[in-house]
Amino acid sequence: MQEFLQLVVSGIATGGIFASLALALVLIYNAMGLVNFAQGEMAMLATFVAYSLVNRGMSFWIAFPVTLVLAFGGGIVIQRVVIKPAERAPVLTLVIITLGLATLVNGLAGFIWGYVPRSFPSPFSPDSVDLAGVFISYRDLGVIAVSGLVLLCVYLLLQHTTVGLTLRAAAHHPEASRLLGVQVSWMLALGWGLASAVGAVSGMMVAPILLLEPNMMQTIIIYAFAAAVLGGIESPLGAVVGGLIVGVTVNLAGSYIPGVGGDLQLAVGLGIIVAVLILRPNGLFGRAAVRRV
């Protein structure tokens, strides 16, 4: 039982990481109706920026917000420079652009920092705390706290501010929003900035667990896809719940299902994607897509 609880708690911690990246995917999906395949690579690049800052002697807790601001700005620049020119192009064109962007960012990081895995400092103590016989590491608790805080901030921004309101409006109905005075194009850029910053959180939280290298996020993005699809791809809340479920499921499957540990955990993530798409294509929180014919 204790082992089970420990696995659940560390599953929630990894789930928080998946949830952040899944939320980034959902933010872009809502704004443009497409999955940003470069989301993981953008997070990886941001993590390398944080790494460089920490390496130059900056404390992690200063490097963290600085990186978020840079990632936010970077997301806006990417939207303006790469996405906006193709705004009216078919979705498939945009999907290919994000795939190209992923390759480009991956290559760029490899060119600058190389492909040798580096250890990324964890800001949390490696010790564990004993909660009624269950040993929970401060690292897990720290990741849960940081992810939780970031997700809460995004929630408050989206649901309780005027910017969040117009952001949702622009994503939902661009034509009508424009006539109501919403600067739709800038709202899309803001969405990219926000997604990029939220994704960067997942990168900085996962880097101490994995090792930092240009391909670091390529498995994480699969779990994030699984989380986003499970949550219904267009629901921010769904992405968070989906992330936690995927995190815990993968962790438990790795320990209790013989043979799944290690590499096959990824198959569990992919299995979730396939199962959700077959059994419940709208996910847990998604709306059925209705099309007038």
Binding site: L165, R168, A169, H172, H173, E175, A176, R287
Partner: peptide, 8 residues
């Protein structure tokens, strides 16, 4: 055909 923000 009304262009409301349906989820709001």
């Amino acid at each position: 055909n009304v262009a409301l923000f349906r989820s709001m």
